[in-house]
């Protein structure tokens, strides 16, 4: 097993499948009377969050606690980071406190990679800048596999702001490793030139959502990041919603078995309409539940044995 999980590319097909299989076993714990396993008793997991996050931080916290690890939550607000402490000094502090794993979210792309050089424990990337978010990709893959029964040969459309999306990058890497075909869809301003070739050969780019809908097994909507709207990547929110938002009529053009996914948090009425978000095709709530199982699997596989 690998020591850190920094990128969707860290996992080969065998390891990724092991994570998904382990997650399936971890999911059974949620249905038990005692929702706790002793596997990480006496281990310490630090959640180091330099960006606001609800679901990812809570999901990692629940995962670590279900495995009996001790969890320390560290958010940049109200900590010594606000007083100007560098990432390295913070890392050395965590190291001195005996953290066995550091789950890190940081606005700077590559921060978890630097962190991994400074600490002895395992580092899990919980989202770095506009770069990667590998556990989100794993839980998306897990959701697709549990709903559709397979990943190999699936056609997945990832729609929206690919330029700024760490979810998209990790998903392209992981899904290609697992044999799925990905098509990136969005306005040309939000899809970097040559991104498909740079991430995974075989990935397609299409600027017309309606053209790809009849041919996909999964459509994954990305959040339009309102905080980036000022940079005029597209003329107006209404125009974006018209061309790239998933509404009822568009959803009905999908094949009967196709899933609608969204990593959350959603902008209802922008990239996705309430009718679609609340339809039976939508896996949005399921994705949150699966996130805990997948993160349990990742923490167990990184920390459960002696992998040094």
């Amino acid at each position: 097993m690998i020591r850190h999980l920094l990128s969707g590319a860290d996992l080969d097909a065998g390891t990724a499948t092991l994570v998904l299989d382990t997650a399936a076993e971890m999911a059974t714990v949620a249905g038990r009377e005692v929702k706790k396993l002793p596997a990480l008793r006496g281990r310490t997991v630090v959640n180091l969050f330099y960006e606001d996050s609800t679901r990812t931080r809570i999901s990692f916290e629940a995962a670590a606690k279900r495995l009996s690890a001790d969890v320390i939550n560290f958010s940049a607000k109200g900590s010594s980071v606000a007083k100007g402490e560098s990432l390295k000094d913070t890392a050395l502090t965590l190291q001195a406190m005996g953290a066995d794993a550091v789950v890190v979210r940081h606005p700077a792309s590559g921060a978890p990679h630097r962190l991994a050089e400074w600490v002895d424990g395992s580092v899990v990337n919980a989202g770095d800048g506009t770069h990667e978010h590998p556990t989100q990709a794993l839980l998306d893959a897990y959701t697709m596999r549990s709903r559709l029964g397979r990943l190999d040969g699936l056609h997945v459309a990832i729609v929206g702001d690919v330029l700024h999306s760490r979810v998209a990058r990790s998903n392209v890497l992981l899904l290609s490793t697992l044999g799925a075909k990905v098509t990136l869809v969005g306005p040309p301003t939000l899809i970097p030139v040559d991104i498909a070739a740079a991430l995974a050969p075989g990935t397609d780019v299409c600027y017309d959502l309606d053209a790809v809908l009849p041919d996909v097994d999964v459509v994954m909507m990305l959040r339009v990041q309102r905080e980036r709207m000022g940079d005029s990547y597209f003329p107006s929110a209404r125009e974006y919603a018209r061309r790239y938002g998933l509404d009822g009529p568009r959803m009905r053009r999908l094949p009967g078995h196709a899933l609608v996914m969204h990593p959350g948090p959603m902008n209802r009425g922008m990239e996705i309409t309430p009718e679609v978000a609340d339809s039976p095709r939508s896996t949005i709530v399921e994705q949150v539940a699966n996130g805990v199982s997948v993160r349990m699997a990742v923490l167990y596989l990184l920390l459960g044995g002696n992998n040094r």
Binding site: M1, T22, E25, T28, L37, G304
Partner: peptide
């Protein structure tokens, strides 16, 4: 996940219960 020697070996794969 209940073994007392988990940490003495490389991570073991979890099987179904």
């Amino acid at each position: 996940l209940y073994r007392d020697d988990l940490r003495r070996h490389a991570t073991r794969a979890v099987g179904p219960t």
